[in-house]
């Protein structure tokens, strides 16, 4: 049990990492923890643009998707903890993300949106942006090249 005003927990696919929203000097800020060691995992980009809401982790916790505040807009971003890259995911102007979920394999993301006063869920393909985050031990192979002699 983790005590002391922690909200919106998101556990990684392998169950080893946990993202939570904590109150840091009055600002809702994401914190990433290793559940095995209990230690905090530093984030390169996600220490500003608060309030943070709706954190979501991929299988190994390589990707942390979250909604941030940038200017007067809510903006979804994904931090890649392996490469240190930040991926910004802008939506059309009239659409503000309320919550999001990244799939465990990081191939898709679901947004909860309010569009013209109606709650909506939309799914987006991430395969052109992110490498998949698969359970360890799974290897991907290409089909052997067969030539006609």
């Amino acid at each position: 049990m983790l005590t002391g005003n922690q909200q919106e927990p998101s556990i990684s696919g392998n169950g080893e990492k946990l993202a939570v929203i904590i109150d840091q000097q009055g600002r809702s800020t994401v914190q990433l923890r290793n559940l095995r060691s209990g230690g905090r995992i530093p984030l390169r980009h996600l220490y500003r643009h608060q309030p943070h809401t709706s954190p979501s982790l991929s299988w190994n916790g390589r990707y942390l998707a979250i909604i941030t505040q940038q200017g007067n807009r809510r903006l979804a971003v994904i931090e890649d903890l392996l490469t240190g890259q930040i991926h910004r995911l802008p939506l059309r102007a009239e659409r503000q993300p309320i919550s999001l979920k990244i799939s465990p394999d990081a191939r898709k993301i679901a947004f909860e949106l309010i569009n013209q006063g109606k709650w909506q869920v939309e799914i987006f393909d991430l395969t052109k942006i992110l490498e998949p985050d698969l359970p360890s031990g799974i290897t991907r192979t290409t089909r052997p090249l067969i030539r006609d002699e």
């Binding site: 049990m1 983790l2 005590t3 002391g4 005003n5 922690q6 909200q7 919106e8 927990p9 998101s10 556990i11 990684s12 696919g13 392998n14 169950g15 946990l18 939570v20 559940l35 299988w59 465990p104 359970p135």
Partner: peptide, 21 residues
């Protein structure tokens, strides 16, 4: 979690929000 074997829950307890695993 992905395997469906570990659960993280936000719980209201004694006026604060805890996270249980």
């Amino acid at each position: 979690n992905g395997t469906g074997r570990v659960l993280a829950i936000q719980v209201s307890r004694d006026g604060r929000w805890d996270v249980d695993i």
